[in-house]
C-alpha cells in the first residue's frame, strides 16, 4: 500500500497556485497555433504603417501630437491595446469552456487545488503573458526609436497591469454566467469602441469637451496614458498614480468577485 495519506503534510497555497500557473502555461505552450515570427511581425508592420506612414502625414499637416511625434504618441498605445486584447481573449470563452464545456477546472478541484488556486493560476499566467508581450513590444518600439526615458523599462509591467485589469473582471464575469451570449455583445459594443476611442490614435483634447469624461471612463484610456508616460518620461505624478489606481482597482475588484464566483461555481 502507498505511504499513509497523513504523511503528506498539506502544502501552502502558493505551491498549489504554482501548479495551476504551470498547468495553464503548458496548455498554452501545447496548443498555441501562432508563431513567434507572427507575434513580432504584427507590431512591426503596424508601427511601420501607422506610426511611420501615417506619422508622415500627421507631421506634414498637423505637426506634433501632444508635444511628440505621431510615432512616439502612437507606439505605447499599441502596447496597452495589445495587452487589453490579450486579457480579454484569455478570459471569456476559455474560462466558460473550462467551467462548463470541457470542465477542466472541475478536474483541477478534484485534486488538492482549491477554486482560488485555479483562479490565481489563471490570472497569473495571463499576466505573465501580458508582461512577456510587453517585453517584445518594448523592444520593437525601442527599435523604432520611440522610447525616450528609462521609465520605458516599466512598460512590460504596465502591459501586465493592463492585461490583469481586463482579465480579472472578465474572468469573474465568465465564472458567473451560463452562456456566452453576452460575450459577443461585449466585444462589439465594449472592446471595439474602446480600442478606437481611448485616445490611442489621437489625444484626449481632440475630443469635444463633453466627450472627454466618457473617454476617461474607458479602462484602456488609463493604460494608454500610463504607457505613453513611461515611453516619453513625461507625465504628472498625481495623474499617473490615478491611472495606475484605476487599473489596480479593476484588477482588485475582479479578483475579489472572481474568487467568490469561482468557488461558488466549482463547489456549489
Amino acid at each position: 500500500m502507498t505511504s499513509g495519506l497523513l504523511d503528506q503534510a498539506p502544502r501552502a497555497g502558493w505551491a498549489r497556485w504554482r501548479r495551476s500557473w504551470w498547468y495553464h502555461a503548458t496548455v498554452y505552450a501545447q496548443t498555441w497555433r501562432g508563431s513567434v515570427a507572427g507575434a513580432i511581425l504584427f507590431p512591426f508592420l503596424f508601427l511601420l504603417a501607422m506610426g511611420v506612414g501615417v506619422g508622415h502625414l500627421v507631421t506634414a499637416h498637423v505637426g506634433q501630437v501632444d508635444g511628440e511625434s505621431y510615432l512616439d504618441f502612437l507606439a505605447p498605445g499599441l502596447l496597452a491595446t495589445t495587452a487589453m486584447q490579450l486579457g480579454e481573449g484569455e478570459s471569456l470563452w476559455p474560462v466558460l469552456g473550462a467551467l462548463k464545456w470541457v470542465r477542466t477546472y472541475h478536474a483541477a478541484v478534484a485534486t488538492p487545488l482549491e477554486p482560488e488556486d485555479v483562479l490565481a493560476g489563471k490570472l497569473s499566467w495571463v499576466t505573465t503573458r501580458g508582461v512577456a508581450t510587453g517585453v517584445i513590444y518594448t523592444v520593437i518600439i525601442g527599435l523604432f526609436g520611440a522610447l525616450h526615458s528609462w521609465w520605458a523599462l516599466t512598460l512590460p509591467l504596465i502591459g501586465g497591469l493592463v492585461t490583469l485589469a481586463f482579465a480579472a473582471p472578465l474572468v469573474a464575469w465568465a465564472s458567473g454566467v451560463e452562456s456566452d451570449g453576452a460575450f459577443v455583445v461585449f466585444y462589439r459594443f465594449g472592446t471595439v469602441p474602446m480600442f478606437l476611442f481611448s485616445a490611442t490614435f489621437y489625444p484626449l483634447d481632440a475630443y469635444p469637451g463633453y466627450l472627454r469624461p466618457v473617454v476617461q471612463l474607458a479602462p484602456l484610456y488609463h493604460g494608454v496614458a500610463l504607457a505613453r508616460a513611461a515611453a516619453s518620461g513625461h507625465g504628472a505624478t498625481p495623474a499617473l498614480l490615478a491611472h495606475g489606481a484605476v487599473l489596480a482597482a479593476l484588477a482588485l475588484v475582479g479578483i475579489t468577485v472572481g474568487r467568490r464566483r469561482m468557488r461558488r461555481r466549482l463547489v456549489d
Binding site: Q8, P10, A110, P112
Partner: peptide
C-alpha cells in the same frame, strides 16, 4: 477545512469526463 489534504488521498472518476481535449493522452 482539510479539503486539499483529503483530496491528496482520493482518486475520482467523475460521471462526466473532464479531460483536456486538445492535448495528448500522455499529457
Amino acid at each position: 477545512t482539510e479539503g486539499p489534504r483529503i483530496r491528496a488521498g482520493l482518486g475520482v472518476v467523475p460521471q462526466e469526463d473532464t479531460l483536456e481535449l486538445e492535448l495528448s493522452v500522455r499529457w
